[in-house]
Design a protein around this nucleic acid. Sequence first.
DNA 1: TTGTAGGCGTTATCAA
DNA 2: TTGATAACGCCTACAA
Lengths: 323, 323
Amino acid sequence: MDAQRRHLVATELLQRIETAARELGYRPNHAASALSRGRSKTVGVLLPDITNPVFPPILRGIEDALDEEGYFALLANTSRPDPSVDATQVAIERMQAQRVEGFLVATATRDDAWLDSLRQSGAHIVLINRTDGRGHLPAVISDDMLGMRLAVDHLVALGHTRIAHLAGPETLSTGLARRLGFEQAMREHGLTIKTMAVAEAYAVDAGETAMQALLAKRSKTQFTAVVAANDLLALGGLQALQQAGLAVPQAISVIGHNDMPLLDQVNPPLTSVRIQHYEMGFRAARLLMEALRERPGSQEATVVLRPQLVVRASTAAPMKLKV
Amino acid sequence: MDAQRRHLVATELLQRIETAARELGYRPNHAASALSRGRSKTVGVLLPDITNPVFPPILRGIEDALDEEGYFALLANTSRPDPSVDATQVAIERMQAQRVEGFLVATATRDDAWLDSLRQSGAHIVLINRTDGRGHLPAVISDDMLGMRLAVDHLVALGHTRIAHLAGPETLSTGLARRLGFEQAMREHGLTIKTMAVAEAYAVDAGETAMQALLAKRSKTQFTAVVAANDLLALGGLQALQQAGLAVPQAISVIGHNDMPLLDQVNPPLTSVRIQHYEMGFRAARLLMEALRERPGSQEATVVLRPQLVVRASTAAPMKLKV
DNA sequence: TTGTAGGCGTTATCAA
DNA sequence: TTGATAACGCCTACAA
């Protein structure tokens, strides 16, 4: 029964009804309600892969927010071993068949055609962590430019001037924004950018490869620090540095991005830009809930969360130059 | 349209129909189907907390298996900051309202009343990773006894004889089974168990506390190695050892359990018993799918997966005794 | 083979 | 305010 109207019925009667209902094993049938009211109380959530450590806190935030309104998330991991089938498209169709009331999308790239058509079909969408290229979808993201500025500021304060960037894929808004943020921050300090390598994906092995590319040019560039666009890249980079016999932070300082779990336990504990993952998921889900309540056309916001630098043992003053 | 009967219709007509359907924006309404057929194509998944690194691979396995049959998982994180409300009970009721066809439960303790009543209500249930106390529910678990044997065998082969156990909560089947496995393995080697500490929960800080308890008795017991029931406990233990100025593995060898992600990157890289998390989720979901297909009363299996020892740098031969 | 009627459980509408 | 009734969209069973 509608919670707001319980008081209209005698308490004693109400209790008798509820006991009876329990004894008869009555359960409200949500499928019937969904059909009749056209509200499934579910939303679709698109993630690349829940196995990637950044996503569990985001998902937890989403579910905590949905929970408050009695919603469930239908989850799809879109990154699959077999890329021949378009997992995203399939997932969206299945979710639409389930009549999800909206979508939370953490898989956007800067040129996703499906996002546009999904939007044009009138679906409610909130992006998480990554924006699309056009920027006309509401989103909850971290201030990636600021994050990179914090990283560069920290290194400059330690005395570094020759700083390299281990960039993420430019197809992702985060990869692009962090590169731009890095360049901007360097400019503000009057520093020129000597080296940059772009990783193919946010993954450990891609980071290793990219770092090797950086190291190949090291004799020329003499960089003493590396800002990575992502922790996984940084971890891969750490491995490449170790193989090259370069000590972190003595020879090279390294900064990651995301501050994913366990990063304080790795060797050396990694300095990283902490992103509010849980908050990101929570706010995005709330935003979606609000959009579902409002009449269509209510203005939709983009929320930008503040990152924070967490200094650990992978950054130190550069070695004295042997001039 | 039913895939098995497509051929009964002229291909050309079929295509015209499908184009028309697409143009009209037709989407099959699953809510209606669910109501009419009594099948929601969803199952409930109960986890303590997706943020704990062991669960993402399990969930991924579950979803990959469900995906094959067009099912979605409705997820609930039952461990909540405010324990005053029984999150499990609430989640189950909401899932039943959504008419989930079964439950995948990774939160079982050895004395859960709700599990029994859920079972008696006729729900299909498959347990994951942990069993209940009575053992009359189908489950997919890892061979915890074997896992501990692998750990002890490895330490004995290195020359250790005084081995301590950092046990998990006895309310969980894994905590109990691993302790029993440890004791059994020690017995097989003719070794007596000098020290054991039981952690309150599978968490880093609980591991730290428990290790401190072990260390308090160290002058008497002189243990040279610790087998932890869980990686988080081992990580906490590592911290306590570091604070006590004991080097790992030179002074003390440490073995974890689960081989969770990033464990190869911590300092020192942790030797651990690898559990097939993904497989566990995948098989459990498959088992549930089968149970849903069969007539009621079909015999239900418990699947036991083989763990595997992953040797890294946290274990070494014991220091020479100064006799 | 094709078509049609009734029902799934809930909600909303419209009369009384 | 209350109570009966149609409708939500799909599925199945039965009739044509």
